[in-house]
């Protein structure tokens, strides 16, 4: 169950990136999974590096988040590429992000090779909590807390700050925002970079718990997709709810009837698409 929430926390971060970009730029970014994988690999490298430098384990989350944020620098570059097709049919936008998926997969293979990368015992450095009969790795709690903080920060930023207001206005009506003096292309760059950062940080945070493998990106995309569809495209609250539903459902399925693990999720996705195509949480804020 808690494993499910841990998974949900990571899924939320990636899905939130997907939501943000879709909400504002109306692009369904398949490459969000690639950013997640990129973050994961960078996380492995960063932690191994600090480990070799003899840093105490307490700094790992900070190092991981830092690695994730540093990688967000690819955001503006990718955005520049996407900018060429903003006015095109969304099929083409989808395909361009698919091209990015292919390219990033090989970039990762080129830099880190195709063997899985794993951080040895970092995961358990934080120890375990015993609550009743349950054993909970403390690291899971750290990640869940981190995702919670990020969610709160995002929510605060979108509703309270000037930038958040501009982002929401752009999502609502791009032309109107532009007419009111918003530099939309700058907003796009920032939003996209933020979306990338959410993905890379999510990937980096997951890495002490699992190994980084080549396929992790393309596998996660479909899950993040499921989250977004269940929660409702473009809705942040939907991303939270969707991530929790998918994460917990997976955990429950694995524990009770492993054959239906992913099957159950897709069934829910299809049910939601058919019954409530706008998602369980119809568009509230960007």
């Amino acid at each position: 169950m808690l494993g499910g929430v841990f998974h949900a926390a990571v899924l939320f971060l990636v899905a939130a990136g997907l939501q943000l970009v879709f909400g504002v730029q109306k692009i369904l970014n398949l490459a969000c999974g690639s950013f997640y994988a990129l973050g994961a690999y960078a996380g492995v490298s960063a932690v191994s590096f600090t480990l070799a430098a003899g840093a105490p384990p307490a700094v790992f989350p900070a190092v991981l988040v830092g690695a994730g944020l540093a990688l967000a620098l690819v955001g503006p570059v990718v955005e520049r590429l996407l900018r060429t097709i903003y006015d095109r049919d969304e099929s083409f936008q989808l395909l361009l992000t698919f091209a990015l998926v292919l390219m990033f997969e090989d970039v990762i293979r080129f830099v880190w090779g195709s063997a899985p990368h794993q951080l040895g015992n970092v995961y358990l450095v934080y120890g375990q909590l015993r609550v009743g009969g349950l054993v909970i790795p403390v690291y899971n709690l750290v990640v869940i807390a981190a995702a919670g903080v990020i969610a709160a920060l995002m929510g605060g930023m979108l509703t309270r700050t000037r930038f958040g207001r501009i982002v929401r206005a752009t999502a609502e009506n791009r032309r109107m925002a532009e007419a009111l003096g918003v530099d939309v292309s700058r907003v796009y760059v920032r939003v996209f970079t933020l979306g990338v950062a959410l993905g890379t940080v999510g990937g980096a945070l997951v890495i002490p718990a699992t190994a980084a493998v080549n396929e992790m990106g393309i596998d996660l995309i479909v899950e993040a997709f499921a989250v977004v569809v269940i929660g409702g495209l473009g809705s942040m609250r939907g991303a939270v709810a969707g991530a929790l539903i998918v994460g917990i459902m997976r955990a429950v399925a694995v524990a009770t009837y492993p054959e239906v693990e992913m099957l159950a999720i897709y069934v829910v996705v299809i049910a939601v698409l058919v019954l409530r195509p706008a998602g369980l949480f119809a568009k509230a804020a960007a």
């Binding site: 099929s91 989808l94 569809v229 495209l233 054959e259 992913m262 099957l263 299809i270 698409l273």
Partner: peptide
């Protein structure tokens, strides 16, 4: 449009996980 694409994607992956599991 995008919803058609997503629904077909979901069906494809449904079949994939059926085949796999």
């Amino acid at each position: 449009r995008i919803y058609f694409g997503m629904l077909t994607l979901a069906f494809g992956m449904l079949f994939y996980s059926f085949l796999l599991k």
